[in-house]
Nucleic acid binder design. Structure first.
Lengths: 293, 293
DNA sequence: TTGTAAGCGTTATCAC
DNA sequence: GTGATAACGCTTACAA
């Protein structure tokens, strides 16, 4: 920066003002041009560590994604964040809650902000922090259930994991809400734990279709079904949620719903940066119809 | 740090010396103790940004994992890195090559080192940088092929992806080497692209078993097999490599080989830190026998 | 309109 | 043995 200042015959302060479009400064266009060119020719890159020291935080945003189902939704949400943050000159780091050194790295970075997605979802004021993702979720679950209803199913179960994860519990609630809105009987929970008795029991209870919280849970249902000689969609229709890449590899290939999480990512980024959310309107959820439902 | 110095009645420099065990300094035990206690009581944490500015690089190591097959091996390698780096007070960040903002973040961090795993594998001197992982790989492929040989197979094909990825090309070479070492005929490549003709062709050519480069490729083979009414292991035995979590969900469940990448991660970290590799001896590769081979 | 200088929290080089 | 002090590269209040 000193070199740029010298090369353009101004002081370091002026260089900083020009390069950061500092508001409240009135610098003639000629000077700005000179500084810009010099910076360009010298290949000047701001030293982000020095900047972070000065500003008290780096220009990096961290997304805590530990415990979230990995798949199309998450990567797409990330892609959306990435676009907007990248455009604003911010960096994005995704943490899957791996281990000590990962935590160490995150704290060492002094991020400008950290988006703790699971926590945000559990909290009361989602929309401010996730671009409306969670709040729109019931609508997406409607898409999932409507697919089943359109195929004549009314007695549906919801495939849930064995442990209790707050995030997935929330999702389960959304499925129930969606079912209510469609006037369906309350969906029975179908715990996916490898026990073949579970789906058999559901079948006996009159269930004809399963809406899974995630694709991997749907795959789990498909697996135990196959183990007991039953098959989808004949004996039990199964629909996933997320469109993981490997859902397509299964036989029967998994029918699932895919949503435009990218738009939510963009919105999240924009509200975080204090920008107007703008035109990023999420596309409606889509059923990816394959074989299982 | 200033506060700690004041509280223990020494200068900032002394605090720094004590807290970093600076070599070549002779500080009385009493002073050290006083400083340590003061730091503790005040809850002093070194400011990593300031340190990075001073040292010219942050205490963070970046692992570039873009393009690598995700699964047990990668996460296990990461876990190994994590342990050793964490113990040494370093942070680890894993980049899956997501997008602009991720790159921006990485450069903003000024990492102490970046391990570009795909590049390292392509390069000539792996062992220095990956803890011997790649060089030991032929041995692991032997485990994969031996499982097939022990079941009476000799005509094996190797499942490869449609595009050409340098990393996967390297892996294919290792399978060929392993086959040669076992005195098997050169394995035919079986391109996994969703075309059911491919495995049928292999069958006609007398192939009785497939060793896949990765689990996902194995799953791809299983899928087209199912599409043509054939099944594993009856018509064609299929063995994967990596033990991805969803391989177990398939029916037939995927037989695969799992290796102790964690140890390689630890070795990588230690050589990177200039430490002796020590006792981290990788456990031998293990076949996870399920149903497909 | 531009320049000067202080300061962010460390670490390292010297005197003492 | 310990303590000033300078530097790392940047931003910004204030002076000119």
């Amino acid at each position: 920066m000193r070199d740029v200042a010298a090369a353009s015959g101004v002081s370091q302060a002026t260089v900083s003002f020009v390069l950061n479009d500092a508001p409240g400064q009135t610098i003639p266009a000629a000077t700005r041009e000179r500084v810009r060119r010099a910076a360009d020719e010298l290949g000047y890159r701001p030293h982000s560590i020095a900047r972070a020291l000065r500003e008290g935080a780096s220009r990096i945003v961290v997304l805590e994604a530990g415990g979230l189902p990995r798949g199309h939704h998450l990567s797409s949400f990330i892609a959306g964040l990435d676009e907007e943050l990248g455009a604003a000159g911010f960096g994005l780091l995704v943490s899957y809650g791996e281990g000590v050194s990962a935590r160490a790295a995150i704290t060492a970075i002094e991020p400008r902000a950290v988006i703790d997605l699971p926590a945000v979802c559990a909290g009361p004021d989602h929309d401010v922090a996730d671009g409306g993702w969670i709040d729109g979720m019931v609508a997406h679950r409607l898409v999932q259930l409507r697919h089943l209803v359109a195929r004549g199913h009314r007695a549906v179960a919801v495939a849930v994991p064995a442990g209790d994860d707050p995030f997935l519990a929330l999702m389960a609630g959304q499925v129930r809400d969606a079912a209510e809105e469609l006037g369906l009987p309350e969906p029975l929970p179908l715990v996916v734990d490898g026990d073949p008795e579970k789906p058999v029991g559901a079948l006996k209870a009159g269930v004809t279709a399963v809406a899974a919280l995630t694709d991997d849970l749907a795959l789990g249902v498909l697996a135990v079904l196959a183990d007991t000689g039953l098959s989808a969609p004949g004996d039990l229709a199964v629909i996933g949620f997320d469109d993981t890449p490997h859902g397509a590899l299964w036989r029967p290939a998994l029918t699932t719903v895919r949503l435009d999480a990218r738009a939510y990512g963009r919105r999240t980024a924009r509200t975080l940066l204090g920008l107007p959310v703008g035109d990023a309107r999420p596309a409606p959820a889509r059923v990816i119809e394959r074989a299982s439902a």
